[in-house]
Design a protein around this nucleic acid. Structure first.
Length: 297
DNA sequence: GTGCAGGTCAGCT
DNA sequence: AGCTGACCTGCA
């Protein structure tokens, strides 16, 4: 077992859990680091993650244990995943080994499909600071304030008194939002894409049984969703770990460290890497992305 | 002022 | 199929 439940707290027992790596490896934008505490607010839930007695605690402030066990993917054995990756990894040994070693606390979260889709449409050709700000405005203006139970930690209660957290808007609310609204929260030219996407949300509520190929086809049919965003949505929202999203960072890693010579586009890179790593692609992508971003290798 | 940011689309060959 | 320029906008 990777964890132990203690009232409203989940005590994480394995080594493959690190809130910084998990939350800052680029898969999620519904969190905030305040005074060393990671506040995580997927959908309309709220939890705070911190270290205590050399163990990580996920304290649930709104929501239940089951939700956050699933959210943090706690029933999956990441030590096994890492072992499997190391077996596949034949060339480029050092790069991948270093990336895993650096980011072994990463886990791929199980996020809401709609929230992931909307978030990643905002992300295209944008910078993180700017679009996370847009997402915060979206929550503040169209979500509702998340209520919470008191923490057992005094400092957390102090933070809660000074900070409000807002839920991601419901699908029903999202469906009412138009281009002008998205433009007003700084979406830029993506406002049109978002307005069109919220009109098609009903399609994506129950698509987990779809194969990766068919799901990608449906996502690509949305205007403003290209291969990279589609793959992020599939990986982070649908837990399809057999895709390898290639963004500017993975692109740089590929050219600088893997294949320096030939001219090759991101879609091809994604194909090559996902063929190589199969169902482990998503994990490898996150290790490499985080390693590149943090260490700028 | 200029260039860039976890890309994508339309309009070309 | 594959390539290229344009694209909102805030911030360095």
């Amino acid at each position: 077992m990777n964890y132990e439940v203690c009232g409203t707290k989940i005590v994480v027992l394995c080594e493959e859990f690190n809130p910084k790596s998990i939350l800052e490896c680029g898969q999620v934008f519904s969190y905030k680091l305040i005074n060393g505490f990671y506040f995580v607010f997927p959908q309309d839930k709220l939890a705070v993650v911190y270290k205590e007695n050399n163990r990580y605690i996920i304290e649930i402030l709104n929501g239940n244990i089951e939700f956050f066990v699933n959210f943090f993917d706690l029933n999956v054995n990441y030590a096994e995943i890492i072992k499997k990756i190391q077996k596949i990894n034949t060339e480029n040994d050092e790069l991948i080994l270093n990336a895993i070693n650096f980011g072994k606390g990463i886990r791929i979260l199980n996020q809401n499909k709609i929230e992931t889709l909307i978030s990643f449409i905002f992300s295209q050709n944008n910078n993180i600071k700017r679009f996370t700000n847009s997402l915060e405005l979206l929550r503040k203006q169209k979500g509702k304030e998340i209520s919470y139970r008191k923490s057992s930690v005094r400092e957390i209660n102090e933070i809660l008194r000074e900070n409000k957290f807002f839920s991601f808007p419901t699908t029903q609310t999202l469906e009412t939002l138009d281009k002008e609204f998205f433009a007003s929260i700084g979406a830029g030219y993506r406002a049109e894409y978002l307005a069109l996407a919220v009109g098609e949300l009903n399609k994506f509520e129950r698509k987990e049984n779809l194969s990766t190929v068919l799901l990608q086809k449906e996502l690509l049919a949305l205007k403003g969703v290209g291969v990279k965003v589609a793959e992020c949505v599939m990986l982070f929202g649908f837990h399809k770990t057999d895709v390898f999203p290639v963004d500017t960072w993975i692109n740089k890693v590929y050219f600088n460290l893997i294949k320096k010579e030939e001219k090759i586009n991101p879609i091809k890179i994604s194909q090559i890497l996902s063929e190589k790593f199969g169902d482990l692609s998503g994990f490898v992508q996150q290790y490499l992305f985080y390693y590149k971003r943090e260490k700028n290798i």
